[in-house]
Design a protein around this nucleic acid. Structure first.
Lengths: 183, 183
DNA sequence: TACTATATGGACCGTCAGTCAACTTGTCGA
DNA sequence: TCGACAAGTTGACTGACGGTCCATATAGTA
């Protein structure tokens, strides 16, 4: 069990990081500043989250949990039950929306991450997408196509599209792309 | 004009960077080490290339020039003359091959780069791909699809595929993807 | 209350990209 | 040939970073 003060600090650090990321440039959000903003010592931040990547991952995991649950056990078409093609479309709708709402946090995690393709979140998304593609169109190289489709969530592109308020193009573009590929 | 000693040092620095990138982990290739390996002072490296990004960009530009020329004025299907769909396929074959041969350098540039989507190389590739898609299939969101296809060149994915020696899957996967999309 | 596993904080460390002012050298016109 | 000067060189220095460490403090427990 985590001690009460530890839990309190964990929350304070996560909230402080969130806020710094929303109001500052990514490069300005150092671990020192996070600690200062959370009102704790720097050592506490590292003790709690291991390193910068761990902190950012924790933040991402918070925001991603609802989607993971919905995919694993929620109602169709996101959850089990619907045809693979519909589930795939629904998943990308949801994941693009998630990435849109949390670009800053996703970008911070991406930048702090040592191997994007091997972190648990990406791995689970990739496995999900691969399996849906395989069901819907067994002749395709599902593993590769999953990588290419998930590449659209890259923070570079998301930020670029957000700057001009065009994220709906990503949603509709991906939808039609998926439809075309699975036909 | 660049003085003779300056030109000599420029070459020495570029060759040293290349070699360090091939034989070391990306994180180990600091500007200090580059300077030492090239046998010049650190100040010289910065004087010549401005900053880390400038150095890596110069390295990438060297390797990319041949492709740019071939696209602009070489023989079809890469150069002008062939149908857009063939040019697109040929371009991705070439660019994947280029990225495969130069993963390390591309990764270093990507990492040093502040805005991936706004550097001159990416911009020119994106413009080229967008225009070909527009010619071949005017109803598509060419700009967006160009981004998604070019996303496959991300060093993360390239390194992942290279590790298991499966870059041919990228070539064939992209080819069939392009074919499907343009149909 | 007394004990201890857990948590805390911030000085400290090594490293990095980037700067700068004193110094050296290639180039070129006279 | 040579002197002048623009151009190039250098490495000590700066400030900031992520991460460590341990003396100190405290929450939970019996």
């Amino acid at each position: 069990m985590e001690r009460a003060d530890a839990a309190r600090n964990r929350r304070a650090i996560l909230r402080a990081t969130e806020e710094l990321l929303e109001t500052n440039d990514l490069a300005q959000v150092s671990m020192d500043r996070v600690a200062a903003a959370a009102g704790v010592g720097k050592g506490t931040v590292f003790h709690r989250f291991g390193n910068r990547e761990g902190l950012m991952r924790a933040l991402v995991e918070e925001r991603v949990r609802a989607l993971s649950d919905a995919v694993a056990s929620g109602p169709p078409p996101l959850g089990p039950g619907a045809p693979a093609a519909s589930r795939l479309a629904a998943f990308f709708d949801a994941v693009v929306e998630l990435a849109t709402r949390n670009v800053k946090v996703m970008a911070a995690f991406e930048q702090a991450s040592t191997d994007r393709l091997n972190n648990p979140i990406y791995l689970s998304w990739h496995a999900h997408v691969t399996s849906l593609i395989t069901s819907a169109a067994p002749t395709l190289d599902a593993d590769l196509i999953a990588h290419l489709l998930l590449g659209s969530l890259h923070s570079d592109l998301m930020l670029h599209l957000l700057r001009t308020g065009e994220t709906h193009r990503l949603t509709t573009g991906l939808r039609s792309m998926i439809e075309t590929l699975l036909r």
